[in-house]
């Protein structure tokens, strides 16, 4: 950073950087929980969709479609007002995490279903014909083949959820985006602060991208 910039910095202190880092930490917690929980739930939902036939598509599929197609920001505002009504007074971060998790699970469900359906019937039958149980076939044949098929889609979902966690700022949860916005109001330094926030988001998404890259390299046999 050039010395000419110093005068713009005088209101932005080291303490502010720490505050942003705190916000980033909360963003990390919210989005990790949402992604991990949403992936597990979504995997389960995807499996249910794949075996559920028409009944599954109408019931579960319909519910997931709602989570998938209503903008997450609308869900956030609706649900943060809804939880207290049904007797669960959640704080903003908790409500945001839950909503993001459901949103993530609805997206992952479609990915997981596609992964399961990417495994040809006769490949599964090959496993069963060797005496594998339904669960062994799922674990040793469908899971590894399906994962490889949908890893790029899953990565897209995970990165999307991380970015959508910025929407939790409307609930005043104290995560990175909200902290940044408040700081901008106070310091009037939007470019600097958003630049730093952007770097934090990039740093948070880095492990996801690296994980994908690592798995893809490990799975590449050609």
């Amino acid at each position: 950073m050039g010395s000419g910039g110093v005068q713009f910095f005088f209101e932005f202190t080291e303490r502010d950087l720490l505050i942003l880092a705190e916000g980033a930490k909360l963003t990390l917690i919210i989005s990790s929980l949402a992604i991990v929980g949403g992936t597990i739930l979504g995997g389960l939902f995807g499996w249910l969709l794949s075996i559920g036939g028409r009944v599954g598509a109408i019931t579960l599929g319909w519910v997931l479609d709602i989570f998938r197609s209503v903008p997450p920001i609308v869900q956030l505002v609706l649900f943060v007002n809804f939880f207290p009504i049904i007797g669960f007074p959640l704080d903003a971060a908790e409500a945001g995490t839950l909503v993001l998790m459901m949103y993530c699970s609805a997206l992952v469900a479609q990915v997981a279903r596609a992964g399961i359906e990417a495994v040809p019937k006769t490949t599964r039958w090959a496993g069963r014909s060797l005496g594998m149980s339904y669960w062994q076939d799922l674990r040793y044949v469908v899971l590894p083949i399906g994962l490889r098929a949908v890893l790029p889609s899953w990565t897209g979902v995970a990165l999307g959820v991380l970015k959508d966690s910025a929407l939790v700022s409307v609930l005043k949860a104290g995560e990175l985006m909200q902290v940044s916005q408040e700081m901008i109001t106070r310091t009037q330094q939007p470019f600097l602060i958003l630049g730093i926030a952007g770097l934090f988001y990039f740093a948070l998404s880095f492990p996801i991208a690296r994980l994908t890259e690592h798995l893809e390299r490990r799975w590449q046999h050609d």
Partner: peptide, 17 residues
């Protein structure tokens, strides 16, 4: 699952894992 262990099967489609 037990019975199928005694009946090896090779399919029309190639389906190595």
């Amino acid at each position: 699952n037990k019975l199928r262990q005694r009946l090896g099967m090779v399919f029309q489609q190639w389906n190595a894992f």
